[in-house]
Design a binder for these strands. Sequence first.
DNA 1: TCAACATGTTGTACATAGCGCAACATCTTC
DNA 2: GAAGATGTTGCGCTATGTACAACATGTTGA
Lengths: 260, 260
Amino acid sequence: MAKKEKSDYLIQAVSHALDLLEQFHDEIDELGVTELSKRLKLHKNNVFRLLATLESRGYIEQNRVTENYRLGLKTLELGQTFIRQMGLLRQSKPVLEALVKECNETTYVAILKELNIIYLDAVETDMTVRVVPRVGSRLPAYCTAAGKVQIAYMSDEELENYLPTKELKRYTNSTVTDRDVLKKQLKVIAEQGYAIDNEELDIGVKCVGAPIRDYTRRIIGAVSISGPSMRFTDDRVEKELIPLVMKAAEEISSKLGFQK
Amino acid sequence: MAKKEKSDYLIQAVSHALDLLEQFHDEIDELGVTELSKRLKLHKNNVFRLLATLESRGYIEQNRVTENYRLGLKTLELGQTFIRQMGLLRQSKPVLEALVKECNETTYVAILKELNIIYLDAVETDMTVRVVPRVGSRLPAYCTAAGKVQIAYMSDEELENYLPTKELKRYTNSTVTDRDVLKKQLKVIAEQGYAIDNEELDIGVKCVGAPIRDYTRRIIGAVSISGPSMRFTDDRVEKELIPLVMKAAEEISSKLGFQK
DNA sequence: TCAACATGTTGTACATAGCGCAACATCTTC
DNA sequence: GAAGATGTTGCGCTATGTACAACATGTTGA
């Protein structure tokens, strides 16, 4: 007997509270009761009570001057708890930091979630021209190095479920939009153990990435190096960056219990 | 007419959801429905529905093998949103990083919340022996440098409300436990514009700290340098670390609109 | 192998807590 | 001063959250 969808069990009041927390994003850092009421399509009194509850627990704070509300410190604490408890993040940070020192480019660790990769952590170079990281952001897996090394090991069937259309969305002139062409490249990537993003997502940005495995031998994420194309010459990528990113991936994998 | 306590408006279901999220802390990274039910004193069915709601939004994930639940990625995203929106964090990070390069010790930015300071951000040195930062943790303000520079500018009345007992809790042999003695020291700190923690909280750990102000001229936080006592000689503290931490505080304050 | 026990998941009725409606207190603008 | 905006307060009603119970499945021990 198949399990019932958990969506049948949702608690509406809790959903509303989460909706409210999610109204603070991008440049929207403070909001009033009335604006939140409009956005959430809830009565002001309801919004006020949600805010009161979240505020009493530190997830929301009120600016006493403007009377507007914003996210509270407890959201940071909760996020830090997640970080502490996630082994991949804990173990990869020192490796990312060392990697930045070696190649002087921005480094990331990323995981695959549905059709996207999500950057879990980043360490930035202090070069004047650099890729600026955005931890937490979601990017399409098929045109990023970190994503490609994670989908490269999927079966044909999985890949076709994963990318259901033969035509993929284009981001730049370099984006591979033909699924069959991408599948051939992924086979090569799986053999090589690394991937390159040649401006497939962003013009002027290149990445190299390698997969991270844990004690179960499964791929659980990827480490990548990202930077401006002008510094990612073919020679440098081949001779310096690929060896570095593969070594970093091996090191993190080893820390997570992966044995060759 | 005084405003009514917001606690009269709390939504119980939302409180329960937050209680649940807060069960994951320290070493407790996965929990089952039954254990959560015991901890929260709620029926299993209630806990299951809370979990279902939080899981449907990504704040909780289920381990398919153990069937246990853990924090989800959305908690990280929410925490990252907080970071992006908080000007103090954004503006202080590069200063912390530069400071680490100058003194090769761990640097922090911290704010005052109730009786404690909370470390908002840290940048670690790569010295083998170092202070290991714990972002998000709360420490008593009166025996940390970052705390002392924030309470030093309070009035006598505020301080007595702030520290209601004449006898303060001891953490080490060096902890100042007499409130009147501490008040005298705080007066000196307010004049100097910096504070030193001489193993008052942790044996073998010393800190120096200086206050951060914003455009309102109020103190909104502190920057500090922390390290093993063996490297924090009196001479080094005086000649190197105090000037560095004060300069860093000035720099961050300036970025936040503070004008002398 | 089977019974006991543990777990997470499913189902349902009812009472109370969440929601909706409205008013109030305060501030700002014209 | 009136109008309009805001956040906050109050209260009644009903829909939703809670409580109770059962089910499906896996594990353990005799």
